[in-house]
Design a binder for these strands. Structure first.
Length: 1060
RNA sequence: GCCGGAGUGGCGGAAUGGCAGACGCGCUGGAUUCAAAAUCCAGUCCUGGCAACAGGGUGUGGGUUCAAGUCCCACCUCCGGUACCA
């Protein structure tokens, strides 16, 4: 008998589709278009993972469904084929990366075709095709030729960049430099994450916790010439336009967070004028050693800064800021007799600033900081600059030079690993310099610490330990005073215990809302690397750094803030920002966590940059760049035979043959750029090329672009929530600004498929003597060993499901219920040995079963464990479908089951059919594939029981099933006597009239509990329903003698009698 | 710490505020078979009861409502991401 045999049916239809180019999309859409895209895979040597077909099946169902509904569907597939693994394979075996890549692509293509996805294979592309990366390089040139006009909020051609007069006057070289400074693609010499093991530099996001994301190798920071893309210019648009797209809120939140926009103020702190030659600051560095104690390392006495005075008399100034004419009387830095000059300088400076606007770039006499809490300016007790800050040398006093040099050296050498994992305690060093707080003329010490990052804001901060956790920790560590300037809100109308009187006294934040506060015994004050600010032992600290303190970083009411006292945080911020601006010492500022995109890699297997470096007669680079002409693209990789890493950060292409590496153009010798582009480059725009993959004269035809864009549905893994999606949005916006594309966003709707875990596992734990211990006692020790309560090493034992049972909310050994075991599913991994290979599944169950199971497991976006018996279950369903149609008593050919006839369907049968059509249709539209399949199962269960099955019901069912199990459906469609593929058959329509039931069963509740059920006409009115309910024997019995206070009747739903 | 997501039978999971557990897996019983596989039929949340039926039940504790898995408040647990961004 012919049983359902996918091994025969599936290849047959795959061949048919390929031969007939069934799924080739039209060049231009006819009618309504639908562009459905999968995140294309990196074709690894391991082949497809069962995680891949999850999203691919979902999009395939949507596409097949849409075709049957008459839409023009674009559904392409390609390969993100540049990448490190092929290059590492080349290093090991000498096989050129292109060979490895092609082999892997062939395998991936075979696997995808084996699953019957309806891709338009005519549009297949790989990022490694010269015909493709020609245009990747072209887009790079476009970025290179674009500057961002912040006022117009868009990228414009470099030719339109206005050149300031002074630059113009300085000559052509200055103009070139000015232009280079404004390109979206630019070069910098920057510390990068060099990974010796991988032989490459990694982007920040490729370094996780100080080791490489791939492989987990250590990473160190070294300076290197790099290409950067100015994505930060687009930060606000990338954030704003998230409003336009239909994406999961979680992904949008991740992107917003990554962009990390914050609003605050930049404020200049006066530091005085540099003294020629020495690099210290005359104005504010404590001058004479006479007033200093030697800054001995490990000093245990609380190091005090000078001049922190109570703010009892916050100057008579009526404006918020002390006027330059009358500096705050308490602010004269009384600790050091010689500091008067700094204040008079400060006064001059302030006076000058009041007359001129806030300078665009800070001069050397100030330290510019960025803060989101300008309302805490009065609480600033020190400053911190990053070790890489350009002002470090300038601010360091001779006494501190060796300590500072030492600290900065170490910071520079520190890998990210050192900065994260090991940096449990704050470190820092005093520069010897002081800055003057513009709001109260206080002199505060300037420190260097690596908790301030050069890459954010201005690389310098004012530290407000009372209201910032990090500053608080640092201040605790180094004994720096802590001044409270924000009173936490009172809880429930009553001041919380511990708040100090905000009167003239001070300061120390006492307390308060446990949520926002962190207390810390002052006793933990390790003597850390530092040299302390000079001591002024005759001064009493206002806030003893030794007393237990608290840090409050929330919003509240201003105290100790002169004229601003009593303001709430928000109002204060607004007002002081305006006041600072008026005084010429500050301005409102916006900052982003987002950094410019490090765009070069030291790989061979990536897109070469279409850039030439001009060489002088001695072969040295002149610093002038020359971009290749678009007509000269693609620039292909050179033929190379040697891929071995030379272990230096320079790229492998440095070893390229000379004729590639050093071309001569127009008599000038050049050296090619030897960095290559990162893997993200190719995936940044592939969705555009799919629309016009063979175009030899443009990246994409504008007409086609306008017709097909945007991508209507984009499905892929959540791991791309930030990088890939942010990078492609960035490129897309540049292409939009430059008129290449017509939409501001590339992907209208985005869905992340969930992760597929391995099979559920039960795990028990045994001691060396084979006695069991409970899972609750087991943990991992510092070395990653699994140990028991007594530190003994235990063995992990995989248990069969039949030796465990559920007890309460945990699983225990059936043989010994006192022993709890772990039960969970783990991420698939080679090391755990729980990887499921699609080839195996297809061989055993067929592609349709695999597809169906992937969809039936649960909601698309959920994380779910694999289950082979589950696959077997859906295979059982497909077997039943087969037998519903095919007479399995005949061997030779597919003959319809004798139960199928042309009899007119009964109303019941029609109801089942139409309900199924309606529900399956709705479920596909909402991507609820698991429930769609359940509805089809119900259909099959119903019709299997019938001995006569009207063809009029079964034929539409085949069409419903087709998007899910296309091979089987085509086979059945053919057996039903159709000649052509069903791929373009009209999707069945349902008739609500056929679904409508004449009578329905409605529950009757008494005080909310179901007590009976009544059968009533489907369209029964409220009154009829209530009457029918009262008439019910059981209900009337229960209602007898009771007082009904309320009757709720919901037509078609229920009747509820509420008793007293 | 922070940001997401999720907690419902033995398992995967269903439920526009309106009969909790659709559908599937597994399990139990039956039919078929010499036997098995396959297939078909029936049952399967828990407790009590022969049964009809009664009571309980969606992570925990409160609340709103005639009615809560679903809405609100507080918390617990797990999974994923992220981390000195001033």
């Amino acid at each position: 008998m012919p049983r359902y045999n996918p091994a025969v049916v599936e290849p047959k239809w795959q061949a048919y589709w390929a031969e007939h180019r069934t799924f080739a999309a039209p060049r231009m859409p006819t009618g309504e278009k639908l562009y459905v895209l999968d995140m294309f895979p990196y074709p690894s040597g391991d082949g497809l993972h069962v995680g891949h077909p999850e999203g691919y099946t979902a999009t395939d169902i949507v596409c097949r469904f849409a075709r049957m509904r008459g839409r023009s569907v674009l559904h392409p597939m390609g390969w993100d084929a540049f990448g490190l693994p092929a290059e590492q394979h080349a290093k090991r075996t000498g096989t050129p990366p292109r060979i490895t890549t092609e082999k892997n692509i062939a395998n991936f293509r075979r696997q995808l075709q084996m699953l019957g996805f309806s891709y338009d294979w005519d549009r297949e592309l790989a990022t490694t095709d010269p015909d493709y990366f020609r245009w990747t390089q072209w887009i790079f040139l476009l970025l290179f030729d674009t500057w961002y006009d912040a006022e117009a909020r868009r990228g414009r051609p470099l030719a339109e960049l206005p050149i300031p007069a002074d630059i113009k006057a300085a000559g052509p070289d200055a103009i070139d430099r000015y232009r280079d400074d404004h390109r979206l693609a630019y070069q910098i010499e920057a510390p990068v994450n060099w990974c010796p093991e991988l032989g490459t530099v990694l982007a920040n996001e490729e370094v996780i916790g100080g080791v490489s994301e791939r492989g987990g190798y250590p990473v160190v920071r070294i300076p290197l010439r790099q290409w950067m893309l100015r994505i930060t210019a687009y930060a606000d648009r990338l954030e704003d336009d998230l409003k336009e797209v239909d994406w999961p809120e979680g992904v949008k939140a991740l992107q917003r967070n990554w962009i990390g926009r914050s609003t605050g103020a930049e404020v200049d702190f006066y530091v005085g004028h540099p003294v020629a030659g020495i690099g210290t600051v005359a104005g504010v560095t404590d001058p004479g050693p006479a007033s200093l104690r030697p800054a001995t390392a490990g000093a245990t006495a609380p190091p005090l800064t000078s001049g922190l005075s109570p703010l009892a008399s916050p100057s008579g100034a009526t404006a918020g800021l002390p006027s330059s004419a009358s500096p705050s009387p308490g602010a004269t830095g009384s600790a050091s007799a010689s500091s008067g000059s700094s204040l008079s300088n400060f006064a001059d400076w302030k006076a000058a600033r009041e007359k001129s606007p806030f300078p665009r770039k800070p001069a050397d006499d100030v330290l510019r900081i960025y803060t989101t809490r300008p309302d805490t300016l009065f609480g600033a007790t020190y400053m911190v600059i990053a070790p890489e800050h350009p002002a470090v040398a300038r601010l360091t006093s001779p006494e501190q030079k060796s300590a500072v040099d030492d600290y900065c050296d170490r910071a520079a050498r520190k890998s990210d690993l050192d900065r994260t994992d090991l940096a449990k305690t704050k470190t820092g060093v005093f520069t010897g310099a002081y800055a003057v707080n513009p709001v109260n003329a206080e002199r505060i010490p300037i420190w260097i610490a690596d908790y301030v990052l050069m890459g954010y804001g201005t690389g310098a901060i004012m530290a407000v330990p009372a209201h910032d956790e990090r500053d608080f920790e640092f201040a605790q560590q180094f004994g720096i005073p802590i001044i409270s300037v924000v009173q936490p809100p009172v809880a429930g109308g009553v001041a919380v215990a511990g708040v100090i009187d905000p009167g003239p006294a001070h300061p120390v934040a006492g307390v308060i809302d446990p949520g926002d506060i962190q207390t810390r015994p002052a006793s933990l004050r390790p003597a850390t690397e530092s040299s302390s600010p000079p001591l002024a032992s005759d001064l009493l600290p206002l806030a003893s750094p030794l007393s237990p303190l608290a840090c409050f970083s929330g919003l509240g009411t201003a105290v100790n803030s002169g004229p601003y006292n009593g303001l709430d945080t928000a109002t204060f911020k607004e007002r002081i920002t305006a006041d600072l601006a008026a005084a010429g010492v500050g301005r409102q500022a916006v900052n982003y966590k987002l950094r410019d995109w490090l765009f070069s890699r030291q790989h061979f297997w990536g897109e070469p940059f279409p850039i030439l470096h001009e060489l002088d007669s001695s072969g040295q680079p002149t610093g002038r760049l020359r971009a290749l002409e678009p007509a000269d693209l693609p620039l292909d990789l050179p033929a190379m035979t040697e891929f071995k890493s030379h272990g230096r950060p320079e790229p492998p292409l440095e070893q390229a043959p000379a004729d590639w590496l050093c071309p001569t153009l127009g008599g000038v010798r050049y050296k090619r750029e030897t960095n290559t582009m990162p893997q993200w480059a190719g995936s940044c725009w592939y969705y555009l090329r799919f629309i016009d993959p063979k175009n030899a004269t443009a990246a994409i035809d504008p007409q086609l672009e306008a017709a097909w864009m945007p991508v209507d549905l984009y499905i892929g893994g959540a791991e791309h929530a930030v990088l890939h999606l942010l990078y492609s949005r960035f490129w897309h916006k540049v292409l939009f600004d430059r008129g290449v594309v017509t939409t501001s966003e590339p992907f209208r709707k985005l869905v992340n498929q969930g992760m597929i875990l391995g099979e559920m596992e039960y795990t028990g734990y045994q001691r060396a003597d084979e006695t069991w211990l409970s899972a609750a006692e087991v943990r991992e020790d510092a070395a990653g060993q699994t140990v028991g309560a007594a530190q003994e090493v235990v063995t992990v034992v995989k248990l069969a499901p039949d030796v465990v049972q559920k007890q309460g909310d945990a699983f225990v050994l059936s043989a010994n219920p006192a022993i709890k075991v772990d039960s969970r599913a783990y991420k698939m991994s080679k090391s755990r040995g729980n990887v499921v290979n699609p080839d195996t599944v297809v061989a055993e169950y067929g592609a349709d079963s695999l597809r169906l199971y992937e969809m039936f497991m649960g909601p698309l976006e959920a994380t779910k464990p694999w289950s082979m018996t589950g696959v077997n279950g859906v295979r059982g369903f497909l077997d039943r479908v087969w037998r519903l149609f095919i007479n399995d008593r005949i061997d030779e050919r597919n003959e319809l089951s004798p139960a199928i006839d042309d009899s007119p369907p009964t109303p019941d049968q029609l109801r089942v059919l139409h309900r199924t059509i309606k529900e399956v249709t709705h479920d596909i539209e909402s991507l609820g594939f698991n429930t769609a399949i359940a509805k089809m199962m119900e259909f099959v269960n119903y019709f299997t029981k019938l001995t006569t099955r009207p063809r009029a019901c079964l034929e539409p069912f085949v069409l419903l099933l087709a998007p899910f199990a296309p091979h089987l459906s085509e086979e059945l469609w053919q057996a039903l006597g159709h000649k052509d593929t069903l791929a373009y058959e009209p999707w069945p329509k349902w008739d609500d009239a056929a679904i409508r039931e004449t009578s329905i069963e409605v529950p009757v509740q008494i005080s909310g509990k179901v007590r009976s059920k009544i059968t009533v006409p489907a369209d029964a009115s409220k009154e009829q329903l209530e009457a029918a309910a009262r008439a019910d024997a059981k209900v009337s019995e229960l209602l007898a003698g009771q007082t009904v206070t309320k009757v709720i009747v919901v037509p078609k739903r229920l009747v509820n009698f509420v008793l007293k």
